[in-house]
Structure formats: structure tokens, C-alpha cells
Nucleic acid binder design. Sequence first.
DNA 1: TGCCGTTCTTGATCTGCGTCAAAGAGCTAA
DNA 2: TTAGCTCTTTGACGCAGATCAAGAACGGCA
Lengths: 248, 248
Amino acid sequence: MSFELPIEAPRDCGSCQIRHRAVCARCDADELKTLDEIKYYRSFQAGQTVLWSGDRMDFVGSVVTGIASLTQTMEDGRTQMVGLLLPSDFVGRPGRETAPYDVVATTDLVMCCFRKKPFETMMGTTPHVAQRLLEMTLDELDAAREWMLVLGRKTAREKIASLLAIIARRDATLKLASLTGPIVFDLPLTRDAMADYLGLTLETVSRQISALKRDGIIRLEGKRHVTVPNMDALLEEAGDDSDGGMLI
Amino acid sequence: MSFELPIEAPRDCGSCQIRHRAVCARCDADELKTLDEIKYYRSFQAGQTVLWSGDRMDFVGSVVTGIASLTQTMEDGRTQMVGLLLPSDFVGRPGRETAPYDVVATTDLVMCCFRKKPFETMMGTTPHVAQRLLEMTLDELDAAREWMLVLGRKTAREKIASLLAIIARRDATLKLASLTGPIVFDLPLTRDAMADYLGLTLETVSRQISALKRDGIIRLEGKRHVTVPNMDALLEEAGDDSDGGMLI
DNA sequence: TGCCGTTCTTGATCTGCGTCAAAGAGCTAA
DNA sequence: TTAGCTCTTTGACGCAGATCAAGAACGGCA
């Protein structure tokens, strides 16, 4: 891959104290507030399902804190994670009545919820928000397509390295940390969730992480605390010269 | 999967003689014409590359006839097709200077091209077109995510069945044919292209098609002409109760 | 402190798909 | 007609990753 997905510098927000990558219901889009007859906050515990595939989506939510995952499920129980929602990302969409996939809280989660109708009328009345939504959606589409390459063509080791690289990069970006020195972060996902994301089994994930540790690509303290001494070496393992996208 | 991706009924267009699923540069969006200082048509032969990954995208194109594929490539040559462009689909996007993947003509192709700038200013001046673009993009995102399940979790046989189901459904929809009886169509892809799309090898694709033929799920005349006697049986093989999306 | 839950690691074995190889089928050009 | 393409099929074999199974490492809680 030879393209760069620019990662928008996150901004601190005085009112909600979180860094945002994109339009935020609380900070950037005052239009959302004015259009909103009903706004409320909902909390979810890790593991709790926010929305089941096929459910009526009668609200639009924006993640305030925590992580949620979008998951596809087959009848026999096989599952594939198809995306992650980070703070400022939206759930719900115009022109669609029901949820196309499960939305599950990966960590404890707070969402800011709106009734759906204002979200749709907003399109016409506030074009710059509409344009921003289009750009966000196109970024997600690019990220999803980049992930298709990972799922379709990469080996288990490359998949793990790709995921670690993405998490490391996002984490460093959110912390406004440098990407040149060692990068330290905590894995926000269990081995099981990583397997779900990568189209692998939990055991294979564990084995490949052990292998990367053995080869000095990463260091581990406990099961979740990761140090990447050399980001370039990790990207090399990912079979990847791009910056890893911004899906996660 | 338990959700339905509604397939918009295609419409005949008096002026360009093709059926469209979505907004069309020639028919639906007169605004595009008026904003367009420079419009021209470009033809491509099957196999020809329309746009290389990393190229400057100095134009926006809408497919008029033919099929183009979006392809990701790794340095060592492994490739993964990440989407197909059908008549009325767009290439190019606001907020992005360079192409994120190769665009290759799968069949002989005609595109209607615009300068890029009008496409962007259009966002503000013609909100209903902007909204339609957002909906189209969200549909593509849903389709891409559905394809992630195919790539990550399905077996080779299920992958082939999924692809055949999608092509069969799209073809029947475009021809306004019934989906209840036998469905007959021509494969628009070589075995190699199918492998590229499914994250398989050409040989595995061939073997699985032979197996589906042997088991009576499909009939083949020549290498491309396919009959699906029972769509439900094919969907069963795809491990799938959804309608197969609209990616292709 | 010890018990019990969840999460993770590691080993042994199996298998689906990739790889390598060869040959058939259809197509155009001479 | 044959030669020379490209696309496709089929076979033999090997390996990456799934599956099955057993513990280990970490909690939290009484």
C-alpha cells in the first residue's frame, strides 16, 4: 500500500474534556444541539449490547467516552468485528430504519443520544455539518477497505502487527506523543476481541503475540501493557508501508 | 446476518439508455452539469488502469457503462479487490487529494469526467445531492463491512456462493427479473478476479465452482454463463440469510 | 489466606486452502 | 488447418492456522 490516510490532529475540548478527531455533538456542531428536542446520556457496561442487528434505530448516538465495536454475526455463531467506534463517532444513519450490525460496548461506554429526526433534517439546514459527515463516512470507507486487505491477504503475524500498529499510532496521536521513539500503550481489547477483529482464533492471536515478543518486535508487561521499541520494525512485520489507517 | 440491504429499484433513463441505482451525473443531478466547466467522456479497455494508488485525483468520474474495480496492493504483489464500480458509481471524493487504491477497468469502460472543484462546491449549493451522496457512501460502507465478514470468517465454498448470490441478485435486479424462479446470468469476472475479490487463489475458486456445479447448486454453460436453479439453496451455501448486499 | 472466575498461554493434532505442476478449452491470427 | 495465446480445470503435496485439550496467571471476593 502506498497511500497515506491523514490522521486529523485531535483537539482538546474545554467543555467535555476529551480529544476529538472529528465533528462532535458536544463541541463542534451546535446545530445538532439546537435541532435536538431530546438529548440524553446513556451509559453502558463493558460487554453490554447497545444495539442488536435488526433493531429499530430510533436514535442517533455519539460516543462520548469508551469504545464500542460493530459486529457481524452468522447464524452458526461465527462473528467478525467490522469497525470500532471511538469518542465522537456516530451510531445511526439517515435512510436506514434498522441497525445493520450489533453494536457492543467494548469498554464502559457513555453515549450522547438524540432522536433520529433532527439528524436527518440537519442535512439540509447545515451543509457544513453534512459535508463533515460525508468526509467522516468516506474515511471510514477507506479504513474498511484497507481492512479488507488485512482480512483477505495477510498472514496471522502480519494481521497482529497491523492491529498493534494501528492501536499504537492512534494512541500516540491521541496523546499527542511522538511516533519516532518507543511507543507505550495498553491494549484496549482482549485476545478474543482481537481475534474477532482479525478473522483469527484466540489461540493464534496469543501465539503470534508471543512470537512478536520473542523476536523483540514488542515488549509486554502483564497481558495488556505493550511497548513498541521500534515502530518501523513493527510496520515491517505488518507488511505495510502505510500509516495504518484510522479505523481503530 | 439478519439485516436487509434494500436494493433501490433501478430506473430507466431516456437520455442515456442505462438503468441507474443511484444519483447519475447524466440524469438525476442537473446541478452537476451546471457546475461543470469541463465535462468529457473517457473510454478504457478491459484491464486498463484508470487511476493508480497515490495518483493525484484531479477529476471526478461517474461510470457510464462497464465495470471498474478498486484494488489494494501490497509491496510483494499480493492484491485484494475492495470494491466494484458499476454504472452511476463515482470515482473521486472531496477532501482527499490522491487515490487510495488502484482503479482498474474490469470490462470495457466509459466514464463521464468532471473537474474536481465543482464536485466540492456542489456540496454546499445542492444539499439534496449531498444527502444522496452521503446515503450512497453509507451503503458502500455497509457493503464493505458485510464483505469483511465474508473475507474474515467464511470458507472458500461459502465465499464463492456469496459472490455468486450477489452477482445473481444484482443482475436480476438490473433486469427487473424475478428472484423466485431460476436465475440466469453471465459472470462479469474471470476466475482470477473472483479470487482477488474473495481473498482466495484462482485454483481454489475453480475447484469450488466445480464443486457447486457437481452438487447441483449452479449449472454452467461454457465458463461464464451461470444458471442458479434455486436461489435459496445458493444462499444456504453462502451461510447467509441476508440479501447479499449491493457491493457488486 | 485460599477459592473461583476469567483471561491467557502452550502443546498436539487435524484440515482447508495454497502451491506447484500439467494439461484441456476456447480464441485469434496466419 | 496449426500455432500460440489466455483462461480454466484437475491432481499431488505441504503448511498455516483451526481445533481440541490442559494448565498457568491473573484478578476479585469471602
